[in-house]
């Protein structure tokens, strides 16, 4: 029955994100131009590319924190706007201040009820927050202080914070940075299971695509002011990237299916 409900919604709203000839940047500096792509419900999408290529800029456009220079992007068939509860956002963070001795449940609670004025007297936000924490497998961290959590535990809390509004689109900015290989794999599997079980779309910015590759439906590759999108095995080929960038780009595969992209960063000139 749930499945049918999802299918009905799918036929009404086929795309969650639709970008047409989207150009992003600031008045004096175009970051990337002419991106056209769609993100569908239930897709797990990786956004990769060198530092400073404009990956976070894409998120800022989707959240409504920044306006496109030209072109058009729609989310749920409407213009992006701040405070859309159908979007769950995990910004890039460099850990938590070591003095922040606050229970993690309190942070997740605020993500649910923090935009309301005054105090809360009902325990509803507490219950919803605890539910979100259990959904990411961190129920037992609810009463731990944020400053005592490891990087992997914190990322789960941030994910729970994004999930409290029951979003249909997750935007995750570099959740894998600073995680060791084991935690990285755990978090990727967690995001994948959320995507599959809740039929949400997840956009995840990463430096390294390899831990994500087995799970991805799509990849958005941003480099040198251009954006390539599609299925990983279509986008990440020497031919397609060379055609897009007009310079030789090579995609190498190792025996375990890992890929390495050579040729885009050298002439990009960023840090």
């Amino acid at each position: 029955m749930h499945r049918r409900l999802h299918m009905m919604r799918e036929t009404i709203v086929p795309e969650i994100v639709a970008a047409r000839n989207l150009t992003a940047g600031y008045a004096d500096n175009t970051v990337w131009r002419e991106a056209s792509f769609t993100i569908d419900r239930g897709e797990f999408v990786a956004i990769i590319g060198p530092n400073g290529a404009g990956k976070t800029t894409l998120f800022r456009l989707l959240i409504g924190l920044q306006q496109p220079l030209s072109g058009n992007v729609e989310i749920f068939n409407a213009q992006p706007r701040r405070g859309n509860p159908r979007i769950g956002y995990v910004p890039q963070r460099h850990g938590i201040d070591s003095e922040t001795n606050i229970e993690s449940l309190e942070l997740v609670r605020l993500a649910f009820s923090g935009k309301h004025w005054g105090f809360s007297f009902s325990g509803r936000d507490r219950k919803v927050a605890l539910g979100a924490m259990k959904a990411v497998g961190s129920g037992e961290l609810a009463h731990r202080s944020l400053n005592t959590l490891s990087g992997g535990e914190l990322q789960r809390i941030f994910l729970a914070e994004a999930l409290v509004s029951n979003p249909e689109l997750l935007l995750l900015d570099e959740p894998l940075s600073n995680l060791d290989l084991k935690r990285e794999k755990d978090l990727v599997q967690l995001v994948n299971s959320l995507v599959r079980s809740r039929n949400v779309a997840a956009l995840l910015i990463a430096h390294n695509i390899n831990p994500l590759l087995p799970f991805l439906d799509k990849v958005i590759f941003i480099a040198n002011g251009k954006v390539a999108t599609g299925k990983p095995d279509e986008v990440l080929t020497s031919e397609s990237l060379t055609a897009l960038y007009g310079v030789p780009v090579e995609v190498l595969h190792d025996s375990r299916g890992n890929v390495a992209i050579i040729g885009t960063e050298e002439f990009h000139g960023d840090e």
Partner: peptide, 13 residues
């Protein structure tokens, strides 16, 4: 909320 998590608070409007 904005004291604790300014980026998410801003995105939430």
């Amino acid at each position: 909320f904005s004291s604790l998590d300014e980026d998410v608070a801003e995105a939430k409007g």
